[in-house]
């Protein structure tokens, strides 16, 4: 396009006005519901229940958040179980999600390497099998999974959750890493071979460090999946020993006489880790999502 001098009404065209108006509407749509939840979590219960609703808290208070750390005696009396359980549930979620991410990377790296570098019989078929297992809906296998965990006496443990989440995220991780590994030049491996590194040495010292962005993206996806997962947690957990944060939030929501501001605060806490990851690793996530699905 040739650059030419623009008059003012060409620059501030109807098109750009429409563009900004539309983006404003879209931004509101994306942001408003969650923003309201955040604002509510800083209100007192009385203010949150006022009619017509207050949009901005008049006297913002962090007492709802403080209650999780140190519930007041009256709260203890009411026995709001969900409030007491929130900190531990956050911890459970963190442990389960981190472990899932690590287990996932560990197992998937080997498999993904084989698809990226080795030309082997049945490879294509195996890859399709992984893809197929990615399509299996969780609800379809939760019952036998539950029975299996009961037999192994793993109900209400971290291990049951980590096992199930790893299984579910593994196929996607393998596909993602396979694509990433293929972008890494072979020369580096050959150089490492010439230097008499064994395969493990080569992977550890050369290959994996270069693949760090891909590995991080895969780990972030596995973490977020595990953090947000609800169905399996509903079946596999029963006490605060292993309850994850979605379970506690759901307890809040289905409990009739709970105060809404606590619920909002718990909800915000539950959103922070995945949201922070999404924003920090935005580029990696967008690439991963696009590649993972556009290429099949």
């Amino acid at each position: 396009m040739t650059a030419r001098v623009q008059t003012w009404h060409e620059r501030v065209s109807w098109k750009s006005i429409a563009l900004y108006a539309c983006s404003f509407v879209v931004a509101c749509y994306l942001l408003a519901p969650f923003l309201w939840l955040v604002l509510t979590s800083f209100m007192t219960e009385a203010e949150a229940r006022s009619v017509p609703p207050h949009w901005i808290p008049e006297r913002p208070t962090a007492s709802n958040y403080a209650a999780f750390v140190n519930p007041s005696p009256e709260l203890r009396m009411v026995g709001s179980r969900a409030i007491e359980e929130t900190p531990r549930a956050l911890l459970n979620s963190a442990v389960v999600s981190l472990s899932t991410a690590l287990v996932n990377l560990f197992i998937a790296t080997f498999a993904a390497y084989s698809f990226a570098r080795l030309n082997f019989r049945g490879g294509r078929l195996l890859l399709m099998a992984y893809l197929a297992s990615r399509m299996v809906p969780g609800i379809a296998i939760i019952i036998p999974f539950y029975i299996l965990m009961r037999k192994l006496q793993l109900l209400d443990t971290y291990l049951a959750l980590i096992l199930s989440y790893s299984t579910f995220t593994l196929p996607f991780t393998i596909w993602m890493l396979k694509d990433y590994f293929r972008t890494i030049p072979r020369d580096l491996e050959d150089a490492a071979r010439v230097d008499r590194c064994g395969w493990f040495g080569m992977m550890w010292r050369v290959f994996l460090p270069i693949s760090a962005p891909g590995l991080i993206a895969a780990a972030v996806f596995a973490f977020m999946f595990s953090w947000n997962e609800f169905l399996f947690a509903l079946f596999l957990t029963s006490t605060i020993q292993s309850k994850t944060i979605p379970i506690v939030v759901a307890n809040f929501a289905t409990d009739l006489d709970v105060q809404f501001t606590f619920m909002a605060a718990a909800g915000v806490l539950a959103v922070i880790p995945p949201l922070a990851l999404a924003l920090v690793f935005q580029r990696l996530i967008v690439q991963g999502l696009a590649a993972g699905s556009v290429k099949g």
Partner: peptide
């Protein structure tokens, strides 16, 4: 483009809770 990621990062349970309050009949 960053904002688009916001709803995606929100767990389904929190999403349900958030909307149940938005659609609440009284408040």
């Amino acid at each position: 483009r960053s904002l688009v990621l916001l709803p995606w990062a929100i767990p389904g349970v929190v999403n349900g809770m958030m909307w149940s309050w938005i659609f609440n009949a009284k408040i």
